[in-house]
Amino acid sequence: MSAAPRQSAGPARWLVLGVLLVASVYFLAPVWWLLVSSTKTNADLFSGNGFWFARFALFDNVQQVFAQQGGIYWQWLANSALYAVGGAAVSTLIAALAGYTLAKYRFRGRELTFNSVLAAVLVPQPLLAVPLYLMFSQIHLVNTYWAVLLPSMVSPFGVYLARIYAGASVPDEVIEAGRIDGAGEFRIFATIALRVMSPALVTIFLFQFVAIWTNYLLPVLMLANDHLQPVTVGIVGWQAQRGIGPSAVPFNIVITAAAISAIPLVVLFLSLQRFWRSGLTAGSTK
């Protein structure tokens, strides 16, 4: 971020700024529309300028969201939090242990294990959801919290990241020193490696948390009971009623509910930017 040298780029600089401004309008305008719309009454959604405010009804909308269908929105948020926090916490610990082992021990089948983890990162997730549903229905796990929690606890991408970080940041000398001091292998991992790897653990947790919070396919297949559903499935269920008929959910409620459900992620994203970038770049740079 050093000051640019005197070579004033002149018109080119303004052209670049103009292009970037147009692009940011494209990316921000829909979000702006969502925010503005969440402050409108249902009737106002259909008239006037979509990108500007009408009667301010945000608080009324929020109240309606949380009152709709007996206040089930609270439950959905709590379910999403349970799936995301529980799944991400467990998968992060498991991934840290596996990644550390793959980076720091030599054993037969190590490359095979790591390559199958890499291949699993590339398997389209929706393809797994259907067979998982059938397997789970045979052992009566469908329509339980476990149906979503269990698959959320495995993160091949987390193992991949953990291996890279452990390989780069946990020095062999420290492990050797621990062994000479008589510490057990698990103790070395728990007291030394975990601490050194902690920034990576935040990244893994973050990515898994977001993946679970935004997941739609798996829970919509697994959970018919709407008291178990996460917020994504719940909102789409409301949206599917298309604002028609007596049991229909009005558009203003769906829009406000959608906006509220994005808040936790936007907050996480803004407050932990550093960790996002380190995860995104793990695979792409040398």
Binding site: L20, A23, S24, F27, L28, P30, V31, W33, L34, S37, W213, T214, Y216, T232, I235, V236, Q239, F251, V254, I255, A258, A259, S261, A262, L265, V266, F269, L270
Partner: peptide, 22 residues
């Protein structure tokens, strides 16, 4: 600009899809 361009990714895909559907 970096934040603005990345914002859509920070929204849950389902929320983005509902938003665009409207």
């Amino acid at each position: 600009f970096r934040l603005a361009f990345f914002l859509p990714y920070a929204l849950p895909g389902v929320v983005g899809a509902i938003m665009w559907s409207y």
